[in-house]
Amino acid sequence: MQSKFSNSAARITRLGRRGCDLMEALGRAGVFLFQSAVGVPSREGWRLWLHQMHFVGVLSLAIVLVSGLFIGMVLALQGYTILVDFGAEQALGQMVALSLLRELAPVVAALLFAGRAGSALTAEIGLMKATEQLTSMEMIGVDPLRRVVAPRLWAGFVSLPILTVGFSVVGIWGGYLVGVEWLGVFEGSYWSNMQASVAFVDDIGNGMIKSAVFALVVTWIAVFQGYDLVPTSEGISRATTRTVVYSSLAVLGLDFVLTAIMFGGL
């Protein structure tokens, strides 16, 4: 009896400790975000930001666009086979556009971004930490949060919404290719049904808000994991994995919450 009790007490203690650790890490991450994001960028800061836009944004463009094209094409193909049973294949454009704008573009682009850019950010910052570059920057009298982390954070925050727009555009075009050019849906009804059902603020605007939220969360997780990791090669590989796992979970979880708020009538 006694040992059973002390056993469960120990378990509760462990749970409590993990809870405390979690809160402490969240607190650190919050302070970290605040310290890096706040402040007016200098001229040099703009140049660094531009540099990171290239690495984070431009270099992720190819994978995002190709995925968008395929997803749009698959959507059109699947949608057509379902809609044609109801004789409603004119609604294909509406279906493709709404699924992309509201859900698939923000979510899939964010997941791809976490895998492509997020993991690279973690590894890069982690490597800078492991090779003492961050420490030596501090010793030279430059704050690495402002110099290294801030440009990457802002570049990620700006890039992902742009990538999401690209994803949607290419996806809708892919749907057009399959639906109109291949399956023979009337071109006029593809576009006009789309235009009749897509609202700029409600659908495109909300999709962009989702994308901005995902951008912040994914980049934040990526740079924080890089900055906070154990500076060994094992630590870097673990942190990179954590970045992808945590940001994917965060994106999917937040997507549900945001969808419930935006479209669920909450």
Binding site: E44, L127, T131, M137, I140, G141
Partner: peptide
């Protein structure tokens, strides 16, 4: 810290800058 210099075990050169820019770094920021 501007009055101190520190030489790290690994050198800790900034990997995104070339040799010239690495040495110029403290001059440019300060």
């Amino acid at each position: 810290r501007k009055r101190m210099g520190m030489l790290f075990q690994s050198g800790a050169l900034f990997s995104d800058l070339d040799v010239f820019e690495n040495v110029a770094f403290p001059l440019r920021v300060h």
